[in-house]
């Protein structure tokens, strides 16, 4: 799980152009939106694309997105449970 979280941090930094952040700056349990990483709605769409592109996971019900993208930890949990 730690390896997946580390990989996700790198992918998020690259995909969302968070060049001023390093992996070690990101707390896996910190909120991705709002006061945490401060991501916005476009970033949320980019995370959906990232899940599909890098892990082959398509979120079927958009209502689930809020819980999945709460933090990097919740994203990793979702990937682990859904990756084929």
């Amino acid at each position: 799980m730690d390896a997946l979280i580390d990989k996700l941090k790198g992918e998020i930094i690259e995909q969302l152009n968070l060049e001023d952040l390093k992996k070690e700056d990101i707390d896996a349990n910190a909120p991705l939106f709002g006061e945490g990483l401060g991501l916005d709605s476009i970033d949320a769409l980019e995370l959906i694309v990232l899940l599909e592109k890098n892990y082959g996971i398509k979120i079927q019900d958009p209502k689930d997105a809020k819980a999945i993208f709460t933090s990097i930890q919740t994203m990793a949990d979702y990937i682990k449970a859904n990756q084929k």
Binding site: Q15, N17, I42, L45, E46, V49
Partner: peptide, 9 residues
Amino acid sequence: YFPSPTVFV
């Protein structure tokens, strides 16, 4: 085919 929302805007 993975359109990037961030690039699109």
